Computed example of a mutant assay.
Amino acid sequence: MRGLTAVLLCLVLASCGQVPPPQVPASSTPTTDTSTPSIPAPLPPSSVPLPTTPPLLPTPSRALDPGVTTVRGTVSGGVESGCTLLNTGGEQYLLLGADPAIAVAGAVVEVSGRADPGGMTTCQQGTPFHVIRTQRG
């Protein structure tokens, strides 16, 4: 009886491990997938209206924007090459983006822009001032 149980157990276990082999196409020519990829459904329309005009970019004509300051002084070169300073008599500003044809050493100019007291520069001199308008003063 024990022998019969052992044989039956072996047959059951042997049949559990068998997996049918994968089917291979009869031709050896590669096939390409021609099925259409699934496209996600469109999103529902948003209740927020989209802008119809492009955003306004900062221009010299917007000099009255909050935070824009106009200062006047004499231009000088900094101790580092390529650094341009504006001395107002009480403050010294590092001019960033000033018109190089106008902001030359010795010239009296008026610039509008935004001071950036915490800004880091390689010039290490004066308060960084991002210029949006330069004119002879």
Score class of each variant (00 low, 15 high):
77 G>R: 07
75 V>S: 05
66 P>D: 12
55 P>T: 06
44 P>I: 08
76 S>E: 10
54 P>I: 05
68 V>M: 10
72 R>F: 08
78 G>D: 06
90 G>A: 11
95 L>F: 09
78 G>V: 04
73 G>Y: 02
49 P>Q: 10
53 T>D: 10
84 T>C: 01
65 D>P: 04
70 T>M: 08
59 T>M: 08
67 G>K: 14
58 P>M: 14
97 G>Q: 01
87 N>I: 00
84 T>G: 00
92 Q>S: 10
86 L>V: 03
44 P>D: 11
70 T>V: 09
44 P>R: 10
82 G>P: 02
76 S>D: 01
78 G>A: 10
76 S>Y: 00
54 P>K: 07
83 C>N: 04
95 L>K: 03
67 G>E: 12
66 P>K: 12
89 G>W: 00
71 V>W: 02
57 L>Q: 12
57 L>A: 14
62 R>W: 07
53 T>W: 02
54 P>L: 11
97 G>H: 05
87 N>D: 15
91 E>Q: 11
57 L>W: 06
66 P>A: 15
81 S>D: 14
96 L>H: 03
74 T>K: 11
48 V>Q: 07
74 T>S: 10
44 P>L: 13
68 V>R: 12
88 T>H: 01
76 S>K: 05
72 R>V: 13
97 G>I: 05
75 V>N: 04
52 T>C: 08
75 V>T: 06
81 S>C: 03
81 S>K: 13
43 L>E: 10
82 G>I: 06
44 P>Q: 13
43 L>D: 08
65 D>C: 09
80 E>V: 11
63 A>Y: 15
52 T>G: 15
94 L>Q: 11
62 R>Y: 12
58 P>S: 14
44 P>K: 10
63 A>M: 12
49 P>W: 06
45 P>D: 11
45 P>C: 07
50 L>E: 06
51 P>N: 11
68 V>S: 08
90 G>P: 00
50 L>A: 10
89 G>C: 00
51 P>E: 06
63 A>W: 13
47 S>I: 03
96 L>Q: 08
55 P>Q: 08
69 T>R: 08
89 G>Y: 02
67 G>Y: 14
75 V>Y: 05
54 P>R: 11
56 L>C: 08
94 L>T: 04
74 T>R: 10
85 L>D: 01
86 L>P: 01
92 Q>W: 00
43 L>G: 03
81 S>R: 14
70 T>F: 01
79 V>G: 05
72 R>L: 10
70 T>W: 07
81 S>L: 15
85 L>Q: 01
51 P>C: 08
92 Q>K: 01
61 S>W: 01
88 T>Y: 02
47 S>C: 04
64 L>E: 09
75 V>W: 07
73 G>F: 06
64 L>G: 08
69 T>K: 09
48 V>N: 09
87 N>E: 07
83 C>I: 05
43 L>N: 03
